[in-house]
Amino acid sequence: MSATQIIITLVGVGLIGWIVWYFWLWKGEAVAAQAGAGGVQIVNVTVKGGYQPAAIVVEAGRPVRLNFTRREASLCGEEVVLPEFGRRAHLPEDKTVPVEVTPEKPGEYEFTCGMNMYKGRLIVR
């Protein structure tokens, strides 16, 4: 093994480590919902290469309105699905689409894009 090969190998192994940490181990910070009129918990979610915020803390038993705005041309995020609530919404680019659900029980509910590549969590307390 030449020195170049050793360096390249080390860089490669380092990259692998970084991928594991960055994509799998990293956990984003959860954002709490804002209280809106009539007790609705409102969260604005930007869809751009993922959901921002991707973790949302809400209270159980009260309606939650997720205002999704897709800010990218990529087709990945064009559909958002909340499987536990049986909701699916089409997100046209740059338009805000509110999706209302009322989580009755505490727990974690996922929302994902149509192909399950983007993931967000609704943390119900």
């Binding site: 751009k48 290469g49 993922g50 959901y51 921002q52 993931k119």
Partner: peptide, 12 residues
Amino acid sequence: SAWNGLRNHNTN
């Protein structure tokens, strides 16, 4: 889309 994903710790 790749860049946006990367910033979100997301891949697609």
